[in-house]
Design a protein around this nucleic acid. Structure first.
Lengths: 126, 126
DNA sequence: ACAATAATAGTAATTGTTATCGTTTAAAGG
DNA sequence: CCTTTAAACGATAACAATTACTATTATTGT
């Protein structure tokens, strides 16, 4: 993997962002600083970074994939109204992958937990 | 909601299917019995059934939505090789939505837990 | 500095899904 | 029954998210 300014910018922007953006959202943000960047470049690098374990994909939302700079297993809260994704500072069970593997006999390598509901900002708007 | 032969067939087929198929997979299967059915009808009815709580959507896979005839909260195992979705007969924590709500202060209404790994069939093929 | 090759921008193509629209069909009342 | 009405249909166009393609540019090792 060869260095590129665009990839560094993508990673830096993702790390500074708290809501785990989509490729499109990142693209719109980065465009302000780097107007010639291509949407394809954002997608290409996000996938590349995720494949190399540097960032993490978050599926589980309707249609669009989000990206997270934190790679360790943790939980998310997805607002069903504004569709933003937040980290959940709460742990159900430590070593969940291992204990679930033992219990079920399945070869579990990772997991995703997504909680859904209306976030505090969206609740205020009612 | 008015009765339709197509909807009944979709629901019946989903209930008989163990791997929680996508709309496309259901469509291909149903076509054998009902060759004139439209893919749009499959999508329309799966969404309608899910909105009415009769079936459940499973997001969380790369891109494609799967559907599940079981509506109560339960966990899934997604094979990262063949992309089939299986039920996980294992419960981490009862009343997870409520306890996580209390713990975090978030207004959690539902959740999804997806384990990932290689299923037994795919392990055999190596 | 130069060759080799990875990465880029721009855009076309693909894929999963939804919307549209004219036609068909199930349910309810006369 | 027969008619009316609205829901559902099939076919296909439209759409949105993502990937593939291609000619050009940038990075790295020598």
């Amino acid at each position: 993997m060869k260095y590129s300014r665009q990839r560094e910018l993508i990673l830096k922007t993702l790390r500074e962002n708290g809501i785990h953006p989509t490729a499109e959202q990142l693209y719109e943000f980065i465009r302000q600083e780097e107007p010639t960047i291509s949407l394809a470049t954002v997608y290409r690098n996000l996938n590349l970074l995720a494949e190399n374990g540097i960032i993490k994909r978050i599926d589980g939302l309707e249609g669009t994939t989000h990206f997270d700079h934190q790679t360790h297993d943790h939980y998310h809260f997805i607002c069903t109204k504004c569709h933003r994704v937040f980290d959940v500072p709460y742990e159900i069970a430590p070593n969940l992958a291992e204990s679930a593997s033992k219990e079920t006999g399945l070869n579990i390598t990772s997991y995703d937990i997504a909680f859904r509901g209306i976030c505090k900002d969206c609740q205020k708007l009612n």
